[in-house]
Design a protein around this nucleic acid. Structure first.
Lengths: 190, 190
DNA sequence: CGCGACGTTGATTTGCCTCAACGATTGTGG
DNA sequence: CCACAATCGTTGAGGCAAATCAACGTCGCG
């Protein structure tokens, strides 16, 4: 069964005969490492579901440095939700960190999908609510912990993910410099 | 017309005869300054819509200091979405900053509401999507700006809101100490 | 093989916090 | 309606976490 259908079934009931009728509204894309599906200034055209691989969202600060604000791996959605909802230009880029496979659905396909399968709207409501909840807790960690604590917390929570991505991306995501991350890693061993 | 109905009508069409049938699923509460509707460790029981006033979400860090992670004013929703969705204990408090009036809707009322008015699910999907989008951009600001820049950006974006809340809450929200905020304000004049 | 991307190390600097003390303002009970 | 306490904002001295800058080693890839 397609991983998206499996994922949806975790949240709402889906009949077997609906599978194809749901999947037809999504487009599949294969992405190579560094392929970019959204660039600053564009209007975000779709919501993306990661079937396989890893994507990241980042922006370019005034010094020209890329700063990663979020990662998405298998079974997560990623998009600039404000740009997608309001059809205004985005301030973000979305790029594949590794070879990836994604499904995408734009607003017009989305409208057709929920017309045919109204209960899918509940699924998306819960996806956004869950992501919002995660963002609220992430805010708490960023607010309440020192950079060293953030690193240790993250490293303990997602050890496998640390392996998967280059250190400079992790540093950029956690909000500090690669040099400082290097220093923290050294401390941890001793 | 009730401000909630007006707000919903910005996002989806609502028939005049539906108003009462929708509002019946919400409870009204009057809050005095510092009244608290959610305490750390509880299960979050509802999503709250601000009719009048201002609420804040905060947590208490390991030093015993309150740190504010978000404010909500008229026509915004506030809740611990993760706790509400998963029915697990929250790590947050939600409290009135000033005398306020709120509507609340718990999960069981919510289910009954969308059974009777399915299109309301779209409204909530968009509310969560919008809030998620706002959280994504807030992450960008916190990530890419120094504390001084964050203050100036916020002060320019929401001048009226600055007037409305005490400075120590603003400092706690922006992520720094009241002392440092005081220093920044002094600099701005000269 | 040679270049560019990535990680590490150390010296120096700085943004912001901590702590302590002091006005100003608010509110509360006598 | 005043006195006193508590809350809130400000100021300054000192300290530390983390950034900056520069240099070097290593690895993978064209």
């Amino acid at each position: 069964m397609h991983s998206l259908i499996l994922h949806i079934k975790n949240y709402i009931p889906v009949e077997d005969e609906e599978y194809e009728s749901i999947l037809q509204f999504f487009d599949t894309a294969e992405l190579k490492k560094r392929d970019t599906i959204l660039i600053e200034g564009q209007i975000c055209k779709a919501n993306y579901f990661i079937v396989k691989g890893c994507l990241r969202m980042f922006f370019i600060n005034e010094k020209g440095v890329e700063q990663t604000t979020q990662f998405a791996i298998e079974n997560w959605w990623i998009s600039d939700n404000l740009s997608l909802l309001t059809q205004k230009p985005t301030a973000f880029h979305i790029q594949a960190v590794e070879k990836s496979e994604v499904l995408s659905i734009g607003n017009s396909s989305y409208q057709k999908l929920i017309q045919l399968h109204p209960s899918i709207e509940s699924y998306f409501r819960m996806m956004h609510q869950r992501a919002l909840g995660a963002a609220q807790y992430r805010m708490k960690y960023q607010h309440g912990m020192s950079r060293e604590e953030i690193y240790r917390f993250f490293a303990n929570s997602f050890p496998e993910f640390i392996q998967r991505i280059p250190q400079y991306l992790l540093a950029s995501y956690l909000g500090f410099t690669p040099e400082y991350l290097s220093e923290l890693r050294k401390k941890k061993i001793s």
